[in-house]
Design a binder for these strands. Structure first.
Lengths: 225, 225
DNA sequence: GGGCCAATGTACCAGACAGTACATTGGGTG
DNA sequence: CACCCAATGTACTGTCTGGTACATTGGCCC
């Protein structure tokens, strides 16, 4: 017989006291589910695997979330919320719009590189044609901080006469997002086909500087036709 | 009783004569499998569904390909081969490097927009961390026509003194690919979050012209720093 | 025209998987 | 300190799913 608070595991291992804590159980399920869904996709993820990786059981997934689908929805929502909050923390040069724009592009790059689980969730969601995210109305209303900041810099640059005035903030955001997301989301196929490692420490600074260069060159070019 | 060569389907429908044709059966399986894998992903795709959508049975998948995994590998390989051949057909201005570069970017854009099943397969493969594509050595050796053409234009532009000389062909390809792939691959989440339809006929020409603008502006800018 | 084998079809299986019925326990409250 | 219910655990189940054993058939070649 094992002492209370221990459970058999090959050899006995002390286990976090089996005290009940609804919040902690829910949070742990959500955290592990995020990992597993990001790892294996929605169809690939196994409810049993998620449960096994926590200190609780599958039963709790149904108790707290209702089912695999609702758990996935909760994961998506929390992930997007976290990213938006992180974006909000980005701060750039307040005087020189060109420097600010370059910085914003490069910080966005860093941001993507350090959140690859999130990028994977986004890719997975797009494979599903956005059928899940579309149900999360709460995400729609969140102002997108990245675009707001972009717009502000853009206006300063136009006022200073250094940026062209026929480009929308959302266009710039699309360009930057494309580049940054692609780095992370498509590194496997791109890396394989062109025999490069987009992840390597050698490439990283080059790729990082590049998006800044591109955006600044584009915005400071005189509009053609 | 139905005549030979007909099968019950609510009401009787004539069916392509049940003549045996190994090549056709294999090709049909591959075509349908491409659709289904692109639609539902590797884990989401069902062998039974693939079979049902063809005129033959599940048994044939195992006869011709060996299993779900090998079928997916065959799909991936054929898809990449098709794309490479399509890329090879791209032809651009032979005199003006700036016009050629803009054209190449815009044709690449068109190319991606019209091959969204392929883009989906790529996204799916990246969710799987490229574990399948990595086994297809045959794809690695295929010279990548897009990059070859890019390099040629880039050299002409440098020689003419209109393009900066510190940019590699692969970097340009990465930028263009990022933008074009993102349009298609991430249209659902991006569209939802920013309330735009990247697919709409109103947006399309704008988005198409934009990548040309960006690339040309970047390459014709004097190097900074 | 008959034999032979590639090509095809049918029926089935074993394991995986999402989900559930039912029992139990811990801790807060009166 | 006993009661109650939120929180948790155990042991299932029905169905789906990839894969296979075995039978059959069509067409080509001698």
């Amino acid at each position: 017989m094992l002492p209370k608070g221990w459970r058999p595991l090959g050899y006995a291992v002390p286990v976090a006291p089996a005290q009940r804590d609804a919040e902690r159980t829910r949070a742990e399920l959500l955290a592990v589910a995020t990992e597993v869904f990001a790892e294996d996709g929605y169809s690939g993820a196994r409810v049993d695997e998620i449960a096994e990786r926590t200190r609780t059981t599958k039963r709790m997934i149904y108790y707290y979330f209702g089912g695999k689908e609702q758990l996935y929805l909760a994961v998506l929502e929390e992930a997007y919320r976290g990213i938006r909050d992180a974006e909000r923390a980005i701060d750039v040069d307040h005087t020189d719009p060109v420097a600010a724009m370059r910085q914003l592009a490069e910080l966005t790059f860093d941001h993507h590189v350090t959140h690859d689980a999130f990028i994977r969730l986004v890719a997975i969601e797009n494979v599903h044609r956005g059928e899940f995210i579309r149900r999360l109305d709460s995400l729609r209303t969140l102002a997108q901080p990245a675009v707001t900041q972009l717009d502000e810099i853009l206006q300063r640059g136009r006022a200073a006469g250094v940026f062209r005035d026929d480009v929308q903030a959302l266009d710039v955001h699309l360009l930057i997002s494309s580049y940054c997301v692609f780095q992370v989301a498509n590194k496997y196929t791109f890396g394989f086909l062109f025999d490069v490692d987009l992840d390597s420490p050698a490439q990283r600074p080059h790729l990082r500087a590049m998006i800044g260069e591109v955006v600044v060159a584009w915005l400071t070019a005189r509009a053609s036709v």
